[in-house]
Design a protein around this nucleic acid. Structure first.
Lengths: 325, 325
DNA sequence: TTGAAAGCGTTACCAG
DNA sequence: CTGGTAACGCTTTCAA
């Protein structure tokens, strides 16, 4: 910038004004400066600007896995909002590891991001307190935090969605419905389990623990659980699966038709004729990012918790019409 | 850092040494410094470190769309390599818009990233020259650049993959094979088209332009093209589709069985029984990132171009066994 | 409309 | 092993 100033025959500050589109520069002078910038191939060093001004115009996003379609949809939505605000985005995948989540978040904070969107892998967010005190804003998406300061949170209606999916199966005459989902340690899995039970209660159906299969999302585990459920003396006539990965693993594990509704929509579910309770990953990301940017522009309201609706999409597998076998 | 130094009763420089794990600090002194750091909740400001040292320990990744499974797989692989090296990653989606690609890249450069992995949306990368001169490393992934300096490039074997897929259909007796793909302006589409023609030539089959349908990846366009091909007086008995999105759009457009092989594997292709030529997005990302980090650690060899192999996975649709209809 | 000087928080360099 | 001082490239503040 010094060189540019010298080349253009103006003061450093004037170059700064031109670079930042600040008002109050003679157009002719500005043109001269811009010519010098072009000629010297000058590019502003944002680190220096950050150091002085304290604002980086960047945010950090921590998700579970960038390669998972649900989180990549969320990620793209956050990115779009950020870019519209002129912000850049750091991304990191926690792989469901609280320590890695923490490292990523703190590394982003050391880079002095202005804000964070976090899909919590862990439950404890005390480690955020010093950063929040230092003025960094943060929003939780997809899952809430169990501890630490009360922060903006955007979730989907997990319990309600599961309730509607299970109620749909009940409406089609099913009385024994298997529930296959992630481990209860995962917030969303527990909420959907809760919705499953609510639907049974509303229909005055008994709750049978033998029909519940919650555990890690590995295909082999799901396969074993599907086989266990179907081998019961009084087997389920329908299955409700707790998320996209589980639905797909279940489909791969099945070798004969059975009524099925899955939480999460996924690509090609339409061609396979799978009835799903769809949530909206992009909507979740957009809502979280919008909330973050309202904080960044000064919103000091109490922390809010938003819950996005789900949508039941009937495609056959929940209504006794099977394409897959 | 000043406060920490005061609290620990040492000089600024000593704190810096402790923070950066530099050798030559008395362990007792170091402990005292660390205690002060803990007590004051101090976090190093990376912007200032960057300003002084010139290294940011961060890279930028520009892909076509973070929500696309192919690019999200690539993205996750790049991220893993970066994190293993202690680097953070900026991500941006170009949406196939050269101007947006350029803006993202230059914004990353203004943040003084040490390196870039770029999936080119545009063909002209002259704009990179000043950045490269300034010492930033860059690697192209998935597609090469048409102009600008010769840079490391990682591609998959597009022509060879298409050739093997089409040859597979020919081996199963097909003599008229439709080719549905992205517009010829996309490098990968053109390469695969080339492979398609090679396979015909090798089998001494005629090339019929009426069987070619290249254009934007919109479902409506694909639908129209599928209908056009099937309505030909001498319609194709098989289709070769040029990428994952096109394959899925084609499947949605079909209403009766026809032999089909698609470029790109995708989730659930196994359940749908779709034969594909699989490329490896994670492998592409890893190779590109490895190449970038070898440059960052001083490798000054001439730019290299790597081509990753593809793999034909037969699942039925290419062999006359259909699950979908 | 323009400029000069101070200072952001760190690391580099040289001295002790 | 430890410390002082300069400097990184910019923005802020104040003055002209």
């Amino acid at each position: 910038m010094n060189d540019v100033a010298a080349a253009a025959g103006v003061a450093l500050k004037t170059v700064s004004r031109v670079v930042n589109d600040e008002p109050g520069v003679n157009p002719a002078t500005a043109d001269r400066v811009r010519a010098a910038i072009e000629r010297l191939g000058y590019r502003r060093n944002d680190s220096a600007a950050t150091l002085r001004s304290g604002r980086t115009a960047s945010i950090g996003l921590v998700i579970e896995d960038a390669a998972d379609p649900f989180y990549s949809g969320l990620s793209r939505a956050v990115e779009d909002v950020a870019l519209r605000h002129g912000y850049l985005m750091f991304t990191g995948s926690s792989s469901e590891d609280p320590a890695r989540e923490r490292e990523l978040v703190l590394a982003f904070c050391a880079r002095r991001v202005d804000g964070l969107v976090i899909v919590p892998a862990g439950n404890d967010h005390e480690y955020l307190t010093p950063e929040l005190d230092a003025g960094i804003s943060a929003v939780f998406a997809d899952r809430p935090s169990g501890s630490g300061r009360d922060l903006d949170t955007v979730l989907c209606d997990n319990a309600g969605g599961a309730r509607s999916g299970v109620a749909h199966l009940i409406a089609h005459g099913h009385r024994r419905i298997g529930f296959i989902a992630d481990a209860p340690s995962i917030f969303t899995a527990t909420q959907r389990w809760y919705g499953y039970r609510e639907a049974l209660t509303q229909a005055e159906l008994p709750y049978d623990p033998a029909l519940i299969a919650m555990g890690p999302p590995e295909p082999t585990r799901v396969l074993a659980d599907v086989e266990r459920l179907l081998a019961l003396p009084d087997p389920p006539t329908a299955l409700f699966t707790g998320n996209g990965r589980t639905t797909v693993a279940t489909l791969r594990a099945l070798n004969r038709p059975i009524a099925l509704v899955g939480f999460d929509d996924f690509d090609l579910a339409d061609l396979l004729g799978i009835t799903v309770v769809a949530q909206n990953p992009a909507g979740l990301g957009k809502a979280a990012a919008d909330l973050l940017f309202s904080r960044l522009s000064g919103n000091r309201d109490p922390a809010q918790r938003r819950e996005l609706p789900t949508q039941l999409i009937a495609r056959g597998s929940g209504e006794g019409v099977f394409r897959l076998f």
